[in-house]
Design a protein around this nucleic acid. Sequence first.
RNA 1: CGGGACGUGGCUCAGUCUGGUAGAGCACAGCGUUCGGGACGCUGGGGUCGGAGGUUCGAAUCCUCUCGUCCCGACCA
Length: 572
Amino acid sequence: MRFSQLLLPTLKETPAEAEVVSHQLMLRAGFIRKLTSGIYTYLPLGLASIRKVERIVREEMNRAGAQELLMPMVQPADLWQESGRWEKYGPELLRFEDRHGRMSCLGPTHEEVITDLVRKTVHSYRQLPVNLYQIQTKFRDEIRPRFGLMRGREFIMKDGYSFDADEKGAEITYKKMYDAYHRIFERCGLKFRSVEADTGAIGGSFSHEFMVLAETGEDTLVMCKECAYAANMEKASCMKPEVSHDKPELLPLEKVETPGKRKVKAVTEFLDIKPQELVKTMVYMADDTKPVAVLVRGDREVQPVKLKNLIGAIEVELADDKQVFDSAGVPSGYLGPVGIKIPVVADREVTEMCNFAIGANEKNYHFVNANFGRDFEVDQVADLRMVTEGDRCPECGGSLLLTKGIEVGHIFKLGTSYSEALQATFLDNNGVEKTFVMGCFGIGVSRTVAAAIEQGHDKDGIIFPAPIAPFHVALLNLSTKDEKVTAAVEDLYEKLQKKGVEVLMDDRDERPGVKFKDADLIGVPYRVVVGKSYAKEGLVEIRSRIDGETVSATSDEAVAMVLEKVRAALEV
RNA sequence: CGGGACGUGGCUCAGUCUGGUAGAGCACAGCGUUCGGGACGCUGGGGUCGGAGGUUCGAAUCCUCUCGUCCCGACCA
């Protein structure tokens, strides 16, 4: 491609609206332009990168036995009503009415459509398993779109859905997808981890998120320093607390006045104890109606997702002061499990503690020397707390580390929830009607490009992994008026392209500095410069964007060298 | 939806407090000089000051409403 003919509007200054690097650089490098909040146009260069990711995704999905199809973006309401999600999905689902007054929505995901398709076309176990995917623009009316392509309302996604005859088959498919995802992100040249994710009601270890490691990531992941354990913060657990064999003598429960002391810090300072010697009682509202008290050690945080799964709620939220008082009859800050009027669950760590402080369920009073089992019982005990850095790995006991990541992929064993709702069935080899066991597998394609930039950039711009860079080589003509130089550039351009190298030839009548800056900005992995030294000594310069390593060569040598470098860089 | 900030040429911003009829740099067009890390000079084009209403002799500036954008929280590829 000739730069002079490319729509590549690079910017010297960072637009004020962009907060994170990937957004800033994509704007500056002429990859995207915003149409309106969360909705972007992909310019030629941005699209080029997206297409690279798509291609890798296609190749790996096909290799894993999946088939590509393309489903409609507009979906009829009745399908969603059938699955029950028309009511459940919430305002993120953009709904509208057509001229006949029929309700429709813009597809945020395609479980309904695919299940409908399969129920109509697949009727026998002989046709299974089926694994279908598409790469398509999705629309989700996000509450708060942000960070450019990281969280848009409209975005490009690969969504795949599998249908198996039974659980066992579904698990095999899941594993295949897991492996395919690993290959995909590896081939994209990204540093990533797959982590166990929350599976909600289904349970088991059948949901993994694929996280690109980057400081600016919105997700926190927990990794073990010693072994391969990695999990999403919501899911991460740690080793059970050590049970000390020489338990101290249990002291008698004692009620003490703690006037005006409500927060952990205030109470522990007042009682002159450590936060680890107190159990706090947090009230959560399950599905807005059912209060539940959660006991955790004073210095811990409750992980709401774990709580949600434990009690089987759809939604849990920390109760406000009014809700606490209304449900427990005690002002917040003085709640405790002894004689409390609402259900109580405890983090398992609490059961190992001795002689701790708790609220007395009476304004301005706490108990000290409380003991689990002796002074109170709870309805359920489970792992309910947020993991912290340095906790012991649940698998090997090693030290846990917290890092930030960007979720670019998520695979999930769905089970039969959709196939049951939509009555999607087939006949097994005994002629018995069965519901399909489903899986779903997503990749944020446009987000993957953004994540790559978050991971690869410096002060001069983007540093793309070669497999997803919009071009392999930037060929700079520094002396467009010099016929000899220009002829050499054109020659290199031809030869490299013939070898399959994607070349962006900067043939603009611009000063060298401008061309250098632009080449760096857009993140092309290799740069070939033809200028003064060519005119004088017949040498061109080859430079790597990644490490800045520069070599000189004749133009004939250059073709072979560039070819070799590009090939090497593309092999991951 | 709750909390915060901001809307002035394509971009970055000044001017708003203290009303007097719109500026700078970059970008764009022309000419000249320059030419290996975002050059310089001269000339030129381009702005309903987000929108509506109000106050005033006079509003980018003050008041009211409204729309939009961005950031922080719950959601997610």
